[in-house]
Amino acid sequence: MPRMDAVTLRQLRALLAVAETGSLTAAAGGLGLSPPAVHAQIRSLENALAVPLLIRAPDGSGSRPTPEAALVLETARRIDIALRGCVEQIAAVKAGHAGRVTLGVVSTAKYFAPRLVARLKDLCPGIEVSLHEANREGIVADLERGAVDLAIMGRPPRHPEVTATVLGPHPHGLVAPAGHPLAGRRVTVEDLVDQPMITREDGSGTRILMTRYLDSQAEGRVFDLTVMGSNETIKQAVLAGLGLAFLSLHTVTDEVQQGRLVTLDAPGLPLIRQWFLVHPQHAPLSPAARTVHDRIVGLGAAVLPGG
Rank of each mutant, 00 (worst) to 15 (best):
R158V: 01
P160A: 04
E161K: 10
E161S: 06
E161M: 08
E161D: 06
A164Q: 10
A164S: 11
T165M: 12
V166Y: 07
V166H: 10
L167W: 03
L167S: 03
G168E: 06
G168V: 07
G168A: 07
P169F: 03
P169C: 04
H170Q: 06
P171W: 00
P171T: 00
P171F: 00
H172T: 03
G173I: 02
G173N: 03
L174V: 05
L174T: 00
V175A: 03
A176N: 01
A176E: 01
A176G: 01
A176F: 01
A176S: 00
P177V: 12
A178G: 04
A178V: 12
H180K: 10
H180C: 08
L182I: 10
L182D: 05
L182G: 04
R185S: 08
R185F: 09
R186E: 14
R186Q: 14
R186G: 07
T188E: 11
T188W: 09
E190N: 11
L192K: 01
V193F: 02
V193A: 11
V193K: 04
D194F: 07
Q195E: 15
Q195R: 09
P196I: 05
P196S: 07
I198Y: 03
T199Y: 03
R200W: 02
E201H: 07
E201I: 08
D202H: 14
G203W: 14
G203A: 13
S204V: 08
G205M: 09
G205R: 03
G205I: 05
G205V: 06
G205W: 03
T206L: 04
T206D: 12
T206E: 10
R207P: 04
I208M: 15
M210L: 15
M210E: 15
M210F: 15
M210A: 15
M210I: 07
T211K: 14
R212V: 04
Y213K: 09
D215L: 04
D215I: 00
D215C: 00
S216C: 01
S216G: 11
Q217D: 00
Q217K: 08
Q217M: 10
Q217C: 05
R221H: 06
R221I: 08
V222A: 15
V222K: 12
V222I: 13
D224N: 14
D224Q: 13
D224M: 10
D224Y: 06
L225H: 09
L225A: 07
T226W: 11
T226K: 14
V227Q: 12
V227W: 11
M228D: 09
G229W: 06
S230L: 11
S230P: 11
N231L: 07
N231I: 05
